[in-house]
Amino acid sequence: MNITVSKKLDRVFPYLMVLPAIVLFIMFVISPFFYGFYTSLFKWDGLSDMKWLGFTNYKHVFGDPQFWNAIKNTFVYALVITVFKNGIGLALALMLISRKHGTTFCRTALYMPVTFSYVVIGVLWTWVYNPTFGILDGVLNLVGLGGLSQGWLSDPDIALYSVAAVDIWKWIGFHLVLYYTGLQAIPETYYEAADIDGANWFRKFWHITIPQLNSVIVMNVLLAITGAFVNNYNLVNVMTQGGPFGSTDVSLTYIVRTAFSYRNLGQANAMSMVLFAMVFIIGFAQFKVMTREENTTD
């Protein structure tokens, strides 16, 4: 009797152990997708009763130039930060890997902004960009480049890039550390063999470093892109609120505004679905890369 009970318990034990994770996960990761889609078919302000609309919300979203402007800004932003975070991160990692001293200090110091909240960083950089007493214009004046000084956050042509620069600033250390770790894993003998063949720095970089670093590069690029969507909401909300003239409006700021200021949660969820459809492929690629090694070893 006792033995059969304990045997039964043994059989359900694994399921009991994973159950809490599955429940929480379904509630706050899976169900938002379905509930979001469901509510996108209604006129709903989040408070009063829902009114069936069918696909009318989607028709409005597809015909809304402000939404497409926000989507365009989102992708420009994602592209800019991905290129610069990875370019600078890899370049600095290559510089550090050849040094003998001070590398730990450099990595530790450059990684520090990763730990700060976007709000603190956003506020801080709003004052760095400030036209009357910001340090950026101050430095430009000091080195005689005062002519380059801009309305960093007030010029519609520049504001989005000024915001993106802050994001890049925050994450350089993160990518630097990932690339540095990747470079450390490349066997020294590859370079020694190339030295014997008389290869120059660029040939070694192109024929050894890049191919060896391949999976690290893919991972870094994907992490930068998938991080872009919520990062830009945080910074834009703190620094520019989407202005001037919608030039820094990104998808999440516009979605939140639609839900809260225009009281149209149904339409905001329709926008979320459209955005999700557009970025899902990037997320799927990240998932594939992260689980690739596991699948080959299993």
């Binding site: 979001g36 892109i225 969507f229 926008m271 979320s272």
Partner: peptide, 9 residues
Amino acid sequence: IPGGVLGMP
């Protein structure tokens, strides 16, 4: 799912 994309849902 890239962070935040399904924030409103």
